[in-house]
Amino acid sequence: MSTRAVSVVRLVQQRSFLVLIALLVALAGLIEIIRPGAVNAHWVSNILEFAAPLGILAAGQTLVVITGGIDLSVANVATAAAYIMASQAPFGVTRSIVAGLLVGVAVGFVNGIGVGVFRVQPLIMTLAMGLVVTGSLNVYSQAAVRSVPGVPAVIHTLGSGTVLGYVPVSLFLWALLGAALIIGLRSTGFGRLLYAVGDNIEATRLAGVRGWQVLLANYAACGFLSAVAGLVLSGTVNAADLSLATVLLLPSVAAVVIGGTSIFGGSGSYSGTIVGALILTVLNSVLTLLDVPDAVKQVLYGAIIVVLAAAYTRVLGHE
């Protein structure tokens, strides 16, 4: 009986992943029906290119949600990182990229201090930090930046270049980060502790874990990934304005939830989030193709998230 029980549980879990893939394929099929011939290599390439920044942004979000938190500053951080990178571009590409990434790590570090050391609710902490980041960025743009910042060529290539005609350059970066995350969550001590802290932080304390260290490192990692996403996004759209990534905040949470990571922490995976990000991007493509007004888009977005979250609770018994 024991092996059967395990295989049944595994099957359901695998099936939930398959269901997501099926949903993805169904959406693509829908596009093909609406516009025969629309789904081709070029379309796939486009989808991947647009999914990459969201996927990387949602990577950081996944890490935080696994610990039972949420990071509402990811979009602000991505925007700030891209804007600072672009404004520093005249002083050298390397310096500008490092500056952008540092912004991300620094904000994540402060989030981690707030949540890990001072026990501020993650929602409050990151919401507040998001405001601080956006406000500071506005001041910075008025005080220190004279010309409209331009995106360096390297970043432009990273965000919108392709290899062999169809494979987006950003896909390589995404795949690299994705592989690191999936393996890291499964088989490093840090990955284990993220799940453990998300499941029961008191229990980890009794086992000798200093939770603040885990949270601090985790929010910093999330900040870093948000900054990377910001840079990639600025390359994709070849611009870095003050509201670059704002629209990606809720999708970053949605991708995590659709991907099956419990919003209460303690379980989930990045592979789910990847599919979640792809589903959202394809869905967006469908809605754009149908010429659906923005308001309706938002309704559908919200509805899909609610339906999937409910389905997880029912089918998988997430608490």
Binding site: D199, N200, A207
Partner: peptide
Amino acid sequence: LRQRPVRENIALPLVS
């Protein structure tokens, strides 16, 4: 850790 497997629960001190 209620949601985690027995194995991760037992191995927790090894990664603390």
